[in-house]
Design a protein around this nucleic acid. Sequence first.
DNA 1: GTGAAAGCGCTAACAA
DNA 2: TTGTTAGCGCTTTCAC
Lengths: 346, 346
Amino acid sequence: MPPSPSRVTQADVARHAGVSRTTVSFVLSGREDMRISIEARRRILGAAEELGYRPNLTAQSLRTRKTHTLGLVSDTVAGTPHAGGMIQGALEAALERDHLLYFAESGGDPAAERKLLQGMLDRQVDGLVHAAMSTGRRRPSEQMRSRPCVLLNCLDDSGEFTCVVPDEEEAGRQAVRLLLEAGHREGVHVVGGRHLTDGTPEGVYAGRERMRGVEAVMAQAGLRLGGVSECDWSAPEHGYAAVRGLLDSPRRPTAFVCCNDRLAFGVYQAACDSGLAVPRDLSVVSFDDSELASWLRPSLTSIALPHRELGRSAVSLLLSPEGPQPAVHRVPMPVRRRGSIAAPHR
Amino acid sequence: MPPSPSRVTQADVARHAGVSRTTVSFVLSGREDMRISIEARRRILGAAEELGYRPNLTAQSLRTRKTHTLGLVSDTVAGTPHAGGMIQGALEAALERDHLLYFAESGGDPAAERKLLQGMLDRQVDGLVHAAMSTGRRRPSEQMRSRPCVLLNCLDDSGEFTCVVPDEEEAGRQAVRLLLEAGHREGVHVVGGRHLTDGTPEGVYAGRERMRGVEAVMAQAGLRLGGVSECDWSAPEHGYAAVRGLLDSPRRPTAFVCCNDRLAFGVYQAACDSGLAVPRDLSVVSFDDSELASWLRPSLTSIALPHRELGRSAVSLLLSPEGPQPAVHRVPMPVRRRGSIAAPHR
DNA sequence: GTGAAAGCGCTAACAA
DNA sequence: TTGTTAGCGCTTTCAC
């Protein structure tokens, strides 16, 4: 009747060791409360070893209702170069607690997401993580409520979920502080801004938060921004277009706060075309710390998106003994000091 | 006794519909061989709907010995920006066949890999994929043999596994053909080569294969390479260092075949510093087609690593009705024509 | 100290 | 056409 060649079971081990299945179960699950004779334990362990016994976690789950398995569904993080770190972090934290991870992507389609979550739920996952490629507000599927869950790199409006997001506002503050420390006062220009585009008319979470931090520190120092070039963050060309003209003007900016490394790359390209050198003629500070930052010449000072740490935190929270509590956790964004900032000269 | 609030089961549905559990099972699993009265079917479906019945796949698996679940373990693909496409491809193919994917990374540590595979096996996965970040030969863990499996982006020496890899040699041929088509004959220089470094004294699979393709087409056209700069592929600076001197020489190359986009970026940087323009003064063709290729000015013609397709194929093969057969599948690498190639002028 | 027996939710012979 | 019954491999109560 068994449809396929079956593996060694506890029953086999019991037979081999000359004890009952119950005893085997106790010994193999390492329970101390039932006292088993040292001799029986030895025989059982020996038999298990010899037969190459491996527990069938599927059967175990059916009984215990714990699968030691988590589900992670994202819109599209695996496809986003650096966001993969979130998965790695989640994985690490899960493994440390002996859990495995189902991973899937919805591509942003709610119907697809529901189907994926359902698949995971049907497989009795112990918990769920909903991850987003870029930080923002999301409305998690109803199914998320049927199990412990946490929102990774996104916020919800209800306030009923555990959310883990980068501390963008503080990052904005840091960016400006780096420039002020180097002696910049006037001529500080922002590239990217809130990321106001047709697709994102209100801007984007990271943009709004970073700008808030940037403006707060400037105000606090009694200074004003030289200007803000609102533009699409998606590719270097937009950064290039935003600053190309500025660089040839007589009152050109001396420092740029770029909302991500791609825009900073565009600024570098524009600088090259204008015969200007970074950081001698203009300082640049950026966000994200993608590999691009270290590839650029000179290498780019950037404030990192703590992808890995976000992933770790999300799973740690999910698997914490008390379970995830409704709250927003903001993870610090580390500053990576490199070679793109110098004192203004002129 | 139930440790946690239990979900709706088939028994509940049966009670509600006034039939036996068997009948419910037949109806819900959509089997046609047992004829069920239209009326009973209606009542059962209605009850299931009303109660919000969802199958417990864990229980189902225990009986059927199929979990509709696959395991994918890689060395470190999620951390490698573009290799994430492999995961996406694998995911897509799995979903199309109603399978979910366990995903994990070993970080290249064999002990960690064994542990991960064991965890998946204990959870009764139906099949296994072993993925590698960069193409090459690997010795898969013994456990891989205990289930159907395929090697993704890597080859094994035994020849007993199904392997899916990019067709690097053909890509090498294509790269040179692009240059020849544009009119280049002499002055074609390779940057990167086999990737001979301290860590990779024999070079790297992609390097060897690409070079083979490059040299074959050159020979076939009765031409010789202007030169090959063997260097580390890991960052633009190596490409920069490799060509900086060449560009100022009187007999400077007029076309570069760069072994990846990062090296090509280094060549662009060097060109900028030498006051040379791409593609007017020098043509560049590259491999990988990372985002960098489209960010560069002018955008870079590159031969893409078909990550997604690799992932798709691997899982399709794994889930094919006959199961994976020992063989090496080479996936074509698509050419992305952009703006970095022009006729040589001089 | 150890074992018999029940049951997790589902499938599938077999009988009715 | 439908129901009875026996497991899948494991945990756990309760009795010996």
